[in-house]
């Protein structure tokens, strides 16, 4: 009898271990088992700062929608089989925004300006790019980026970043040098239409077996007068209004300039600028015809995931690029849920 009951206990034990073990595995994986030290959820939690603006993007919350077309000249078709680069025009939906999570922040307060494009209307041929004014990233990994955000977080007492924490972070991350040099040399222009927007991360152009690492930039055709913004600086929508007034007169145009890497360049490292003598190819023009408020425009529903690439383009193993895609998806999930429940965006 004793043997029988101990054997029965063993068999119940096997069941408990099998079911409990699998349950634990699901629970663990759902809670970060096997992940690096930072997850997409932690990133977006940080961006929200415990006080999300419901319905809005968690980063680059302030912005407006664009419509226009990318007019390719065919110069890139030797490097990429993407139909977008064949001579001709492809319509896009775009968005100009500023950095930060506050959807009502003053346009002039932000240090980062962005141009995002979703080019082409066929899902499997679409090309999305989210470009920013800085040409490089300060760090190479999502983990380091998260540390940077923490180091630069304003001290609740002073309202400014803690200088000791900033210094400690910078000392530990010498790869931030190129980004800091750029930051020191950069002055914001008077208009979104006179900024240069950079892909930052590198990608591959693919044509058959041939693969070429590239970065690109939207380079404005309008020239900056170099004196900065001269209108009403107290208008929170100063730059948006300036841009719309500009569009009433004529389309805003940028050249899409590709820079080709050589074997000396590491396409997986977004912290290093490539030398100025690298070959550049103008692939065509980004022509913006109209702009609308983001609550009414088509851009609001778009997650400008930079890994949405057409056949003929491919992602590099740049860790920041991969991290951007995951974090954008988490932000989009939260925002979409709020839209479904009709929360926020008022």
């Amino acid at each position: 009898m004793a043997q029988q009951s101990s054997s029965l206990a063993l068999r119940y034990g096997i069941i408990a271990v099998a079911v409990g073990g699998l349950a634990l595995l699901f629970y663990g994986v759902a809670n970060g088992l096997g992940q690096g030290r930072v997850t997409a959820q932690q990133f977006v939690d940080f961006q929200e700062g415990g006080n999300p603006h419901l319905g809005f993007r968690r980063a680059h919350a302030k912005g407006f929608c664009l419509a226009g077309e990318f007019v390719a000249n065919g110069e890139l078709s030797a490097y990429s089989s993407a139909t977008i680069f064949q001579p001709g025009a492809t319509p896009f939906v775009g968005r100009i925004s500023i950095g930060g999570g506050n959807p009502t922040a003053p346009d002039l307060a932000s240090g980062v300006r962005s141009l995002a494009l979703s080019i082409g209307d066929k899902a499997n041929l679409r090309w999305q790019t989210a470009m920013n004014t800085p040409p490089v990233m300060p760090v190479r990994t999502g983990q380091a980026f998260f540390e940077q955000m923490n180091a630069f977080r304003p001290d609740p007492e002073t309202g400014r970043p803690n200088p000791e924490r900033v210094a400690a972070f910078l000392a530990a991350h010498p790869e931030t040098q190129a980004a800091r040099e750029w930051q020191a040399s950069y002055t914001a222009t008077e208009s979104y239409a006179t900024e240069t927007y950079n892909s930052i991360n590198a990608f591959y152009l693919v044509n058959g077996r041939q693969r070429q690492a590239v970065r690109w930039a939207a380079v404005p055709q309008a020239e900056s007068h170099g004196r900065g913004f001269e209108g009403d600086r107290d208008d929170p929508n100063a730059l948006q209004n300036e841009f719309m007034a500009r569009l009433d007169v004529a389309p805003v145009v940028y050249d899409l300039v590709f820079t080709l890497a050589t074997d000396a360049d590491d396409e997986n490292d977004p912290t290093v600028r490539w030398p100025a003598d690298r070959q550049q190819i103008v692939a065509g023009q980004i022509v913006i015809h109209s702009a609308t408020d983001q609550s009414e425009g088509l851009c609001n529903g778009i997650n400008f995931d930079p890994l949405v690439l057409p056949p003929g383009m491919a992602a590099t193993n740049d860790q920041i690029l991969q991290a951007r895609s995951s974090v954008y998806a988490e932000s989009y999930r939260r925002r979409a849920r709020e839209h479904f429940y009709q929360q926020g965006m008022e």
């Binding site: 595995l25 699901f26 994986v29 096997g34 997409a40 860790q319 991290a323 995951s326």
Partner: peptide, 20 residues
């Protein structure tokens, strides 16, 4: 299905290059 469930739970969190 167990693999798909585990992959789904992991991939939505990951910042690593295997995410894609």
């Amino acid at each position: 299905l167990i693999s798909l469930l585990l992959a789904g739970l992991a991939m939505v969190q990951s910042l690593e290059p295997w995410h894609l």
